[in-house]
Design a binder for these strands. Structure first.
Lengths: 156, 156
DNA sequence: GTAGTTATGGTCAAATATAGTCAGAGATGG
DNA sequence: CCATCTCTGACTATATTTGACCATAACTAC
């Protein structure tokens, strides 16, 4: 007895699987109408099923012409990265931990030295004007999205 | 399913790209007639898409023989551009504004497309789990640090 | 050359169209 | 019975579209 959320998940996955690039644009209201549920249930499905751990990136736009953009990424590779930085377990990433992670990405030829430097500029302590706990949490989010992109695009 | 504004944007960009000098003259009423929208929607498109972050200047003239003059700012020296946008980065940077800056950096050949995507993953709304005000403030800091680095290192 | 008329473009706030968040209610399985 | 998952709706955030009113330049009649 699959839940509505399960059906919505299957529906979306089916579209993604049949797309050329593994990238699709859908509308939240379309989906909620199709499945006779409230729009926010779509957000629930996105959050629980189409997250980075499961191999998806999601971007969106509001207003007229708005959409949900769902991007499928190779999940195996993503898992490897995620396990390595232990983002999957603990959302807090300290600045040293982040730096070490980036260095390893360089060593493994996944990003260039310059890309490492650029990324570092964006997530070092001085770029995140908030308290320590918050910094760590944000780095977690930032790196998760970065990993998603890298998993999709491959090495440098 | 793109919005009318998106189509108008594409239309204008196409004309600019196909022009000799990157400078075109168009009429607001022509456009609004062509796209069956109110004239002020053209102003909206100009304001949101043909701004300085994306590397455009717009001048206009009213009255008989009036026009919109859209100028694509030519690529200039990296250092000069970085200095210029550094000034433009105030405390609050919205996600669209940030995206515009990044697009321009790519056009200026200061960063690669891939670097733009990497940076985007780090500063888009979904990577900054805090309130709107805070997001904007952080993007400002992040971009300032990024620009500082790029100014030192030079283009890609 | 001044005043009035016409032809442009500009501004701004309200209306409309999407999407996001969050807390609590409801359902389900051990 | 408790934990977890799912569903709902009120409230929020953002992008676009529209229209009423404003500003400026050129032309025309005198």
């Amino acid at each position: 007895m699959p839940s509505i959320s399960d059906m919505i998940e299957k529906f979306i996955i089916n579209i993604v699987e049949n797309s050329e690039e593994g990238i699709i644009h859908i509308q939240r209201n379309d989906l909620s109408t199709r499945f006779s549920c409230v729009p926010s249930q779509i957000n629930y499905v996105i959050k629980t099923r189409f997250n980075i751990e499961r191999g998806f990136l999601v971007e969106s736009k509001r207003g007229e012409g708005g959409f949900l953009k769902i991007i499928k990424i190779p999940v195996i590779q993503t898992k490897v990265y995620l396990d390595r930085i232990s983002v999957g377990i603990n959302n807090y990433i300290g600045s040293e931990q982040a730096k070490n992670f980036l260095k390893r990405l360089v060593e493994e030829n996944i990003i260039s030295e310059r890309e490492m430097n650029i990324i570092w500029q964006l997530l070092r302590d001085e770029s995140l004007p908030c308290d320590k706990e918050e910094k760590g949490y944000q780095r977690g989010k930032m790196l998760k999205n970065l990993i998603g992109y890298l998993a999709k695009e491959g090495g440098k």
